[in-house]
Amino acid sequence: MTFTIANTLADVLVALAAGARPIAGGTDLVVGARQGKDSLPETLIAIDRVGELRTIEAADDHTRIGSGVTHSMLVSDPLIVEQFTAIADAAALVGSPATRNVGTIGGNVMNGSPAMDTGAPLVVLGAEAELSTTAGSRRVSLDELWVSPGRTSAQTDELCTALVLPNPPDGAGSAYVRLEYRRAMEIAVVGAAAAVTLDGDVITAVRIALTAVAPTILELADLSGLSGRAVDESFFAAVASAASEQAAPISDLRASDRYRRHTIGVMARRATEAAVRRAQGEVIDVPVNRALGVGAAS
């Protein structure tokens, strides 16, 4: 096995073209190999020291998060916390401080787990993945990228170099909430992200995506009926029932499908409530899980 540390993106892309596999924090790859899931690739190219991948850049209409940005960086970045708050909510919950210090958003996205915490926030905030090769770059929607648990549509020589997000309009707010049984070293039982835009008390846009209730991150469909509605109890109730109805959860060691179907409604409602409050200008500390209620336990 060979392990090469790259210093530039160009070196990484050349190595990938030659058949190497990328490694950043290794929090999925190495742990998976040790658990006997998949053995480590023969040729590894370490991308964690490539500075070009570790920046967050704001442009007029969009923000570009480098794929090598760690969860810790996301949680402490003022722009992410203010404008893309749901991502910060999610990043703050991942694993332990050690995991957050080395685990990256690009690794999270390309690992393609339906239980990934940053996935649903990226979806509701309209992120696209930038995939690069020596020949150039393309952007794909996350819906197109995630095929099935652990599988993406990216080619083997493509590196996810960034997540690109449109800058949210005025009156927007977002949040991510998950159900967890303990407060560290946890994986989402179910989770929900919401992004809303308000015009006064009226919802002008709403997107909701769910964690760990389908083979990939699931964005709720048919929410157009919720736009134009006032923020009231019936709006939140509609969100909760849409989430419970559209979820396709499984039963496993962590929860039954029945319990997941119920609690995803609770999480979707809480995420939406927090997103609305943020859109109204209220500051709710990151992560929402700690700032509010017990099920997403304070």
Partner: peptide
């Protein structure tokens, strides 16, 4: 206890 989810802390 979060009665909506059953999580006890």
């Amino acid at each position: 206890v979060d009665k909506d989810t059953g999580v006890a802390r």
